[in-house]
Design a protein around this nucleic acid. Structure first.
Length: 885
RNA sequence: GCCCGGGUGGCGGAAUCGGUAGACGCAGCGGAUUCAAAAUCCGCCGCCGCAAGGUGUGGGGGUUCGAGUCCCCCCCCGGGCACCA
């Protein structure tokens, strides 16, 4: 777009760049309205030009535009990519109108084969290296529609369209071995000071590194178990668990396994009731949130295992709260010291054995108990539980117990030879004893699981694998890439339509040349968005994924994206960066040096109900609200007001900034959105206030023109010695403003306060109406600075006004004049007993004694002290003085 | 359920390191200008109170000379929870 000059250009090997994660919004199903940009994208974009000379534009076609949701039965998938590209066109036009300095030559669309072929190429390399592998994984299966459902499509355990009870089903899928990079992904967070703490915390918790003990419970020989393994003890006769609390092993009173655990299946073979229970557990969604909130249920398998240290028989239960995908799919249950185990044991009457003495535990625990007691009565369960351990004279509460559990304090009791040992000593001793028996070892465990990328819903990058009966799974050779996704597919709502495309499926095996079948699963669209930032370095490269330009540009200085991506997208992008590094494609370790996570934009929702009670969502742009009643502009009839929600196409509450731009211009629209709220917060969208932004720009415009009309300025420096005090005050405020705006924008990335500071400066300037030489000189200085400070936010108007103020000059960022900041007298707040009672003026250089004297002598102090002697005087330099009596 | 945020006037928000709560803007009220309106300009504007003053940052407790900010308990809202992306 050109025309904009850099504000400043520090010498660097390359200009800093900002990468804006622009999701092209979906307009499918909104044909009547045309494509509608979602406002938060523009808001995100608005934060950019202050840092950026070059911006890159992402058009993530496969990501946002997968028409797999509610619209799919109404629309053909034909030309889906063409539609993506139309949406991208609309978005591009809008971003251009807003005046961002975006380098459009780098634009790319991830739905195009020339992009995704390199993703396929990398896939084949990683597959050969073993970084990608195939295994069975559990998905949501809709038995009526015969299709895999996304978690989002499972509502209360039923398929969203068919209403059928969803089943868990195991299918083969391809996985990225992200767990191999778990340590590096975790440790790498410490090398990212430019990332928000909360995002790093979330990622660290997600990766969830924990050290503990992996140990085995041998199956008990007795009982009615089928014992199909007649050939003596094998690994099948050991039940492995992982625990971070091996010190509580002596308190394990049962073991719980997941419904999918092989042992559960073995026990169910001749136990119909158990088989039925396992079937029940296999119903419902695979989502962790559902697993964690459902009612805890279990059933005794009838099998026993032997406690590895005591030799005691303990029962094995199937628990619906045990996750097959985490750890060993089995847990040792220590009800005395684990909340879930405790609840489970109480429900089924299983024994509870305390093995940690809380009397020896921390003061924090005692404090927690006391605090709980003080603030609320103990629940019946808590009270009962604490009584059941009365013999140890210790009160337990859910909370106290949880704190203590996590803090790993206290010593072992009722644990034989381990009695009296603290956490570390007990774990060491128990791990050593288990190791001697060959039944356990210390182990580091991650919560992070490998990344399954197979999808069965057609719209995505094809997985470049050919299945051959004689050669197995064969990666497609580089020369045969890309495997192009057919776009003329008509869906019928059941399964993956690619399966029925002979022209796609049938192919020759790249190895033996025999007849083979192409993989019809496509990749998770997160894959596309995991490396697009790198492709911007060389979007035109036809001969490879990346070339040496990648290291010229990467890592990205500043990445901007929504907070909803804090974990998955950002973790996958970091992972992909390391994969590309290890392929020799680039040299850096991390993709994004600084990260700004945007809050979301929310807006009001409106709807009407049709005869069948179905809600028809109406766009806020078509609704007028008068005196609390919302009416549809088209027919003047009322509509129902829904809640305020995240902008989404399903609720049709996306706000198109185009109307705002058309009416007020791009500068006003930008100023308004930047002023509304800091970027990290979510923003409730409302047009109210946009006139204020325009009013301010008009004032600025008028002030500049009135000043310029006053004719040329007197020579610089004239009147400098005779400046009245208020002119000095104005200059001080001016330079304080320059300082603040720079800090707000560069360090705090907070634009609303930067704008407010310039507004304050303009308010002060407007009050200074003299036209003497000194006043005019300061006015010139202040207007120049104000215009330059606003240039990142309102580039068009700033450019014009600067040309008026300084014809022919290049807009330059103002510098702070330290001398102007100096004050000889300052005002301190005066408090008496911590309450505001007035203020006192002292010399800026005054020492503590002088300040105390001035404070005591002041009128308000005398009034409030009433002759009482001060007990203490607190002086905070430059701030306040507090007299305590 | 678990992890991460958040809760401040009628509204959006400010208060950056524990130091004047409510900057800046919107809305509202009063005034100037105008034949009138719009626009513009000036002033007022948390709540209670005539005032002095009191009170106030989701609720309760605590630490401190001083708490929106730190600690404990509770409530509510949002994001994420691996197939929405």
């Amino acid at each position: 777009m050109g025309g904009r000059r850099p504000l400043s250009c520090p010498r660097r090997r390359r200009p800093p760049q900002v990468l804006l994660s622009v999701d092209v919004p979906v307009s499918i199903g909104q044909a009547a309205h045309g494509p509608r940009a979602q406002l938060h994208h523009r808001r995100r974009a608005g934060a950019l030009p202050c840092h950026a000379r070059l911006q890159r534009h992402a058009a993530d076609g496969l990501g946002r535009l997968r028409p797999a949701r509610r619209e799919r039965r109404d629309r053909q998938w034909r030309a889906a990519c063409a539609m993506d590209l139309r949406n991208i066109d609309h978005m591009r036009a809008q971003l251009m109108a807003l005046g961002f300095a975006i380098d459009w030559s780098r634009e790319l669309a991830t739905c195009k084969p020339d992009y995704y072929r390199w993703e396929q190429w990398l896939f084949t390399r990683l597959f050969e290296k073993g970084v990608i592998y195939k295994k069975m994984a559990t998905v949501n299966w809709d038995p009526v529609d015969q299709t895999v459902l996304a978690n989002e499509q499972v509502i209360d355990g039923r398929g969203w369209r068919s209403g059928a009870l969803v089943e868990k089903r195991d299918i083969p899928m391809y996985f990225f071995r992200i767990t191999q990079y778990a340590d590096e992904l975790l440790n790498g967070l410490d090398t990212l000071p430019g990332w928000p703490e909360r995002v790093k915390t979330m990622q660290a918790n997600w990766i969830g590194r924990s050290t503990g003990v992996r140990l085995a419970f041998p199956l008990a020989a007795a009982g009615e178990q089928a014992a199909p393994h007649a050939s003596g003890p094998t690994s099948d006769d050991l039940l492995w668990v992982f625990t971070t609390r091996a010190d509580t092993l002596m308190g394990a009173t049962f073991v719980a396994v997941a419904a999918e655990h092989p042992l559960a299946a073995r026990a169910a073979a001749n136990n119909p009731a158990l088989a039925a229970f396992i079937d029940e557990c296999k119903q419902g969604s695979v989502a962790e949130a559902d697993m964690a909130t459902m009612e805890k249920k279990g059933m005794d398998t009838g099998l026993n295992v032997v406690h590895p240290l005591t030799g005691e028989d303990i029962p094995v239960w199937v628990g619906n709260y045990v996750l097959m995908s985490y750890g060993e799919g089995a847990v040792m249950a220590v009800p005395a010291h684990d909340e879930r185990d405790f609840g489970f044991a109480r429900q089924y009457g299983l024994p509870i054995r305390q093995v940690i003495d809380a009397r020896e535990s921390s003061r924090a625990l005692r404090q927690a108990i006391a605090d709980t007691r003080k603030n609320r009565a103990l629940s019946a369960e808590e009270a009962e539980f604490s009584e059941s351990f009365a013999e140890h004279a210790t009160e337990f509460t859910d909370r106290a117990w949880q704190d203590w559990y996590a803090s790993k304090e206290g010593v072992c009791i009722n644990s034989g030879k381990y009695d009296g040992l603290g956490y570390d000593a007990a774990v060491d001793a128990i791990a050593a004893d288990l190791a001697a028996l060959g039944l356990g070892e210390k182990k580091t465990q991650f919560r992070l699981r490998d990344w399954g990328i197979s999808r069965q819903r057609y719209w995505g990058c094809p997985i470049p694998i050919v299945h051959c009966d004689s050669c197995g799974d064969v990666p497609v050779p580089a020369a045969q890439l890309p495997v192009v996704l057919p776009e003329d597919v008509v869906p019928d709502g059941a399964g993956n339509p690619l399966n029925r495309r002979a022209d796609f499926v049938d192919c020759a095996c790249p190895k033996c040349g025999g007849a083979a079948r192409r993989e019809t699963d496509t990749m998770d669209t997160f894959v596309e968005s995991s490396w697009y930032y790198a492709r911007y370095a060389c979007p035109d490269l036809a001969a490879g994924m990346l070339d040496t330009r990648a290291d010229t540009w990467l890592p990205v200085d500043q990445y901007i994206g929504g907070i909803e991506h804090a974990i998955l997208h950002l973790l996958y992008a970091r992972f992909f960066h390391k994969l590309m590094r290890d392929e020799g494609l680039l040299a850096s370790d991390e993709p994004f040096t600084r990260l700004l996570t945007q809050g979301m934009v929310v807006a009001d929702t409106f709807y009407r109900e049709d005869a069948s009670g179905k809600k028809l969502w109406i766009n806020p742009g078509d609704v007028e609200v008068k005196e609390g009643i919302a009416i549809l502009k088209a027919d003047g009839q009322p509509v129902i007001v829904g809640g305020t929600e995240k902008m989404s196409k399903s609720k049709n509450n996306g706000v198109d900034p185009q109307a705002l731009i058309d009416r007020y211009g791009a500068d006003t629209a930008r100023l308004f959105t930047m002023f509304a709220a800091p970027p990290e917060q979510s923003l409730e969208w409302s047009d109210a206030g946009v006139e204020g932004a325009q009013r301010f720009l008009k004032r600025l415009w008028k002030m500049v023109y009135e000043h310029v009309q006053g004719g040329p300025l007197p020579p610089a420096g004239e009147g400098a010695n005779t400046r009245p005090k208020q002119i000095d005050d104005l200059r001080r405020q001016l330079h304080q403003t320059i300082q603040k705006v720079a800090d707000d924008i560069e360090r705090r990335k907070q634009f609303n306060t930067a704008i407010a500071a310039v507004m304050e400066l303009m308010n002060a300037l407007a009050k200074q109406d003299g036209d003497d030489a000194a006043t005019r000189a300061v006015r010139q200085e202040a207007l120049e600075a104000a215009v330059a400070l606003l240039a990142p936010i309102v580039p068009h108007i700033a450019e014009t006004l600067y040309a008026e103020l300084k014809p022919g000059a290049t807009l330059t960022w103002p510098t702070v004049d330290e001398a102007a900041l100096v004050q000889d007298e300052i005002e301190l707040i005066l408090q008496v007993n911590g309450k505001l009672r007035g203020s006192v003026r002292v010399a800026a250089a005054a020492d503590k004694a002088a300040i105390e004297a001035a404070a005591l002598a002041s009128e308000p102090a005398r009034k409030y002290l009433e002759g009482r002697p001060p007990k203490k005087i607190v002086v905070v330099p430059g701030r306040l003085v507090n007299i305590v009596v």
